[in-house]
């Protein structure tokens, strides 16, 4: 699965995207965020406060209980600040 990071999540984690092999038990956005925290201390720090970690699946905003499938495009980012 390809994961994109934006804004300070990108700079804290240090890469704009990465491809990961998800364990079978990771079936929701919330479980994915928890699993990503275990990948490195940078991931753990960047993702520590879930209130400021928003998620899009296939370019739609979704809540943490949203299901994920292996072919999904997933993006993690802080609350948006455009306009």
């Amino acid at each position: 699965m390809k994961i994109f990071y934006f804004a300070w999540l990108r700079t804290k984690i240090g890469v704009p995207s990465e491809t990961v092999d998800l364990p079978a038990e990771v079936k929701t956005v919330g479980a994915l965020v928890d699993w990503l925290k275990t990948r490195s201390p940078k991931h753990a720090e960047a993702l520590a406060n879930s209130k400021v970690v928003k998620v899009a699946v296939n370019q739609e905003h979704v809540p943490y209980d949203h299901p994920i499938e292996p072919g999904d495009e997933v993006a993690l980012f802080p609350p948006v600040t455009g306009g």
């Binding site: 934006f6 804004a7 300070w8 905003h61 993006a75 980012f77 802080p78 948006v80 600040t81 455009g82």
Partner: peptide, 26 residues
């Protein structure tokens, strides 16, 4: 449109200030 855009469109602002760069908070 501008109210919804500000909370839903995926844009992020990085400001350059005398103290360095900082991401704008929502």
């Amino acid at each position: 449109l501008i109210d919804w855009l500000k909370t839903k469109a995926p844009f992020w602002k990085l400001e350059a200030t005398p103290d360095g760069e900082r991401w704008v908070e929502a």
